[in-house]
Design a binder for these strands. Structure first.
Lengths: 197, 197
DNA sequence: CAACCTTTACTTACTCGTCAGTAAGTTTAT
DNA sequence: ATAAACTTACTGACGAGTAAGTAAAGGTTG
């Protein structure tokens, strides 16, 4: 792995753990084992490094989503949800970064990333439209459906510690802390049920 | 309104708009029309001010949720979702603060707030249990249901600008930008449908 | 083949702005 | 008179960004 790739990897860890503002390039440099100026050799500024992290992840995700065969609406919707979920499981840093970006109103999302998000939404929209044409689904606002899929999953990831606190407060509630992997097919079934005519 | 209340109000605006780190007490002081040191007269430090903002909001929400009559599960669940939605509509600053807090893993949520969140979850859990007892709902993980309710709504609020960008990218997708008010009953119906046996 | 540029990939050591937090003094109400 | 509610003017730290220098690798020319 090149130094540049290593910088992106470590930076994505820090951006994920503490957020853009609290992540310092001194820390990133230290962990990579280079000087801070080395980061500035590879990236124009802190934000450019953040863009590199973001774009690499959104690019991978868009590729996966694009491959989904949208001819069978219900199967396609399940695959859409499970592919997204699997991506979150595979890339543990992505959830927190994505969640913060949405919470922030995607204020500093580079155009190339929002374009790839748009493509994902276009795929979802097509699945929903096909389902509507076959009288399987009601007419829906695709952005709202996107929110129903994406936000519970990313925030389930980010709120592990909160669940522990809540469980300590409410001893009568059990089995709250299920793994994300087990949540995904459950959420997929619920969303499909909710959208079916 | 006292100076202290005014400081909380203005601070909640800034925390909501730019987040904890980027919100500066100089800006808050300027807008309130006091000196920065006046803030330190009322609050120990920046974080104590943030706690005050958070606690006042979570306190109000917990009061509203607590009043819900949980004897009729389906009506109660609808009321739970619509009450939460109405709260977001009424308190425009709350969505972004809550969304950031969840994205952050609720790392710096004061114990009093997480206690009130626990009470909300307890209410939801009771509604779901009653529904289960009457064979209306399947057995569910209440935290996951909470995520399904809370996260789409708060993030729908925070992503208004993102929707505009996406709409500009995909001209064939129309009517994405519906008001939050119109989304709430729709989401409530979908979640109830998803949870019903 | 060797003395010479040139580029790549960095390092060391610094500046400079910002912002949380404070010390000490001042006004206002009771 | 004295406590509450401030103000002015400051400090100190942190962290983004930079200037200037260097070591090594590769290419060019006499």
């Amino acid at each position: 792995m090149s130094k540049k790739e290593k910088i992106i990897k470590v930076a994505s860890k820090y951006f994920s753990e503490v957020g853009y503002d609290k992540a310092t390039l001194d820390d990133v440099a230290k962990e990579v084992g280079v000087s801070k100026a080395a980061i500035y050799y590879h990236f124009k500024d802190k934000f450019a490094l953040y863009e590199a992290v973001l774009c690499s992840r959104f690019g991978e995700l868009a590729k996966i989503i694009d491959k989904i065969d949208d001819s069978k609406p219900i199967e396609a919707l399940r695959e859409y949800i499970e592919s997204f979920g699997k991506f979150l499981v595979d890339k543990p840093c992505f959830s927190a970064i994505f969640a913060r970006e949405l919470a922030d109103g995607a204020m500093n999302m580079p155009a190339s990333c929002s374009k790839q998000m748009s493509l994902n939404l276009q795929k979802l929209s097509k699945i929903l439209q096909n389902g509507e044409a076959e009288n399987l689904f009601e007419k829906e606002n695709p952005f709202m459906v996107q929110m129903m899929i994406v936000t519970p999953l990313i925030n389930y990831r980010t709120t592990k510690k909160l669940r522990e606190v809540v469980m300590a407060n409410l001893k009568d509630i059990k089995n709250i802390d299920v793994d994300l992997e087990d949540i995904i097919p459950n959420l997929a079934s619920k969303i499909i049920k909710a959208l079916k005519c």
